[in-house]
Simulated assay, not measured.
Amino acid sequence: MHSSDTSKPKRAAGDKAAARGPKQRLVDQHRGNSELVEQEEQRKDLGFGTRINESVSRLINKDGTFNVNRRNEGFWNRINIYHRLITIPWIKFLGLVLTFYLSSNVVFATLYSLLGYENLSGIENVTPDTPIGRFMGAFFFSSQTLTTVGYGHISPVGYWTSGLAAIESMFGLLLFALATGLLYGRFSRPVAHIRFSRNAVFAPYLDINGWMFRIINERGNQLIDVQVEVSLSRLETKADGSSYRRYYGLKLERTKVNFFPANWTLVHPITDDSPLYNCTAEQLADSDAEFLILLRGVEDTFNQTVHCRYSYRYNEVRWGEKFKPMFSGSMDGEGTVTVDLNQLDETEPVSLN
């Protein structure tokens, strides 16, 4: 009786442990998953992902666009007409407007010629009675109808020609309304015209070294509350020998200025906790390093937030050089400080600490 009594508690304890086994394993599994999730949440990723492990030209182009080729996009999503017309250079925009205007008049002039020049009353008094002259007369009548100028020298005759002229006048109203909206959008779109130094440098900073670059506002409009973020992208090797791209946030000496009237040299002090500590130019090249920069600020004319992007590749970093001062060191007759924008890229050799 005594031995059987002692065996019951042992069996009960064993059954209880066995019952807790799967539950404990489930708890451990959840704890492990939570730790992995926490690690993923803390992993810095700028949106490029870690699988970009091949050496590419750069992640961010010099004009701030992303060096990403998107395939299998929809036609309208790919051309994105409004965005392109708003952001393309002025010369291209004006060239497109002029080309579309001339081609539209050529199309309508051709339609008038197909309907017959005799349906354009007064055309014989405007242009020579030759094939080219009559077509140019139809072209000029089309331009007057498209712009709703209507000098009255030529007028349509008949239902078909008058109907075509009515359609063209409506087309002209829509066209110029669209062009006016695009012009307003281009003029009213605030843009941060920030000029970056051609190269970044490794230069002495206090009693250590620092990674530096310099910026300046190219235009007279003021930017306030300017903030800058810098990240380092480089390839690293896992334990299994595979490579992946990792991103580090670089701590700057100063990340924000309230006013930005002159140049600003941004410095990342290379301390013991910096990812650039004891780094060499060869290591930067081997890891395909790139410094990614994001700048934000408020443009005071429109009171809107503007931003720009830039990057420095490993071969755009000069070692043992520092930036020369951009100030003239003197005041002019009106007491204003002189800053020479052409000196933004000028450096001079210096010994590293």
Rank of each mutant, 00 (worst) to 15 (best):
V157G: 01
V157N: 11
V157D: 08
G158Y: 01
G158C: 06
G158W: 00
Y159C: 09
W160I: 10
T161P: 07
T161W: 01
S162D: 11
S162K: 11
S162G: 12
S162Q: 11
G163V: 08
A166E: 10
A166S: 15
I167A: 13
E168F: 15
S169M: 15
M170N: 11
M170V: 15
F171T: 11
L173F: 12
L174C: 12
F176L: 12
A177K: 12
A177N: 14
A177P: 02
L178T: 15
L178H: 08
L178S: 13
A179G: 07
A179H: 06
T180I: 13
T180H: 09
L182T: 08
R186G: 09
R186A: 10
F187E: 15
F187D: 14
S188I: 10
S188R: 10
R189K: 15
R189P: 07
R189A: 14
P190Q: 07
A192R: 01
H193N: 15
F196A: 05
S197N: 03
S197D: 05
R198S: 09
N199Y: 13
N199E: 12
A200I: 05
F202E: 06
F202H: 04
P204Q: 03
P204W: 00
I208V: 15
N209A: 12
W211A: 08
W211S: 05
M212P: 02
R214G: 01
R214V: 03
R214L: 05
N217E: 05
N217H: 09
N217P: 10
R219L: 14
N221T: 13
N221R: 10
N221A: 12
V226W: 00
V228D: 00
V228S: 00
S231R: 02
S233M: 02
S233E: 03
L235G: 02
A239T: 07
A239M: 04
D240G: 05
S242F: 02
Y244Q: 10
Y244S: 05
Y244F: 08
R245A: 04
R246K: 11
Y247S: 02
Y248L: 02
L250F: 04
L250A: 02
L250K: 00
L250N: 01
K251V: 14
